[in-house]
Amino acid sequence: MAEKGPIVVNVRQIDGAAVVAPEGEVGYHEAPTLRQALREAFDRKPARLVADLSGVTYMATPGLATLVEALQISKRTQTPLVLCALSGRVRAVFEIARLHTVFTIAEDLQSALSPKA
């Protein structure tokens, strides 16, 4: 079994929201690190969870799968999940997988934290 990949995932609280911000590439090797950070963030029962993807330079399907898992947890726990700050390259992957309409996606972190998001 391969080890988890080395990406940094910053987690902070802003006005009751958990902001999970991975930095770097999220591929097959790195996705488990993001998955663990998201699960731990949900466990703390935030008012909402924001995945700030501004630092993600690459995303493959394991990253998408991790976010789909987070969406399922979000629905189960009734914790709103908002993605924000997707680069063009990352957004393209969501569009190829036709997942861009499934998630709530905000332009930036400020918008993602807004109650309207």
């Binding site: 998408l64 799968a65 789909v68 898992e69 399922q72 190829i96 997988a97 997942l99």
Partner: peptide, 18 residues
């Protein structure tokens, strides 16, 4: 089926799409 929203199974779709 992409309408079935669940983790996994997207790799082949992406390869064929690209």
């Amino acid at each position: 089926d992409l309408a079935d929203i669940r983790p996994g199974g997207l790799g082949v779709h992406i390869i064929r799409e690209v």
